[in-house]
Design a protein around this nucleic acid. Structure first.
Length: 202
DNA sequence: GGCCAGGCACAGC
DNA sequence: GCTGTGCATGGC
């Protein structure tokens, strides 16, 4: 019988190189956490490779702080983040988000999940990605990969709600930030590998 | 050339 | 509350 803990142990053996420092950052944003927030936001329904292009554009245009992004004209911001898709929606919402961050005293240390969910453009998955990887809080991130894995393992049937699945992880595991980071990373890398293998074999 | 990628908001039931 | 739909690019 497969449990969440045994899945972790199995994935960890299969991907020994994956660790809690999995979220890629160039270090060129200020503060460093901002790059994670922007990346988490832009990757909504978008391939990470396209997000990297958009992040690279932001760096090239020196839009690497919340204040500079917030003060960028919408048309310009649209052009900069275009590779990440949904660029009209995302430009406006990213600008509003950065405005809020730059006005929020101690955003990364103090922002709550409820406050994040109140921001247009931030749903549960994006909120939890920000909380876990940028703010170092123990919220487990549930994404399409996670659901696919749990479906395959028959731990969920498919109609479970986001927070229900999140709590399954949070109740099965010690509340450790680095463990949550690593486990989510393991799930993503494992599902990517499975998809790649199945494509190769066709 | 169709399908998908580390979703979300919003309308209409 | 649940389901459908628009948003849009780039890779395979």
């Amino acid at each position: 019988m497969s449990s969440i803990c045994s899945i972790y142990n199995r994935l960890k053996k299969q991907h020994p190189h994956v660790n809690s420092g999995w979220w890629p950052v160039s270090g060129k944003f200020k503060p460093v956490q901002l790059e994670i927030v922007v990346g988490a936001f832009l990757t909504q329904n978008t391939n990470w490779r396209n997000v990297e292009k958009a992040l690279g554009n932001l760096i090239n245009e020196e839009k690497t702080t919340a204040a500079t992004i917030a003060s960028t004209p919408l048309i310009t911001l649209q052009r900069i983040i275009k590779p990440s898709g949904f660029y009209r929606q995302k430009a406006k919402r990213l600008r509003d988000l950065c405005r809020l961050i730059s006005e929020f005293d101690g955003f990364y240390g103090n922002v709550t999940r409820g406050q994040l969910l109140g921001i247009t453009g931030i749903g549960r998955e994006t909120a939890d990605s920000i909380l876990l990887y940028a703010c170092n809080r123990p919220y487990f991130v549930v994404d399409a990969y996670t659901k696919r894995l749990l479906l395959r393992e028959k731990i969920i049937a498919g109609k479970e709600k986001y927070d229900e699945i999140r709590e399954m992880f949070e109740k099965s595991l010690p509340k450790k930030v680095n463990l949550y980071k690593e486990f989510h990373a393991l799930i993503v890398e494992n599902e990517k590998k499975i998809r790649k293998n199945s494509n190769d074999s066709v």
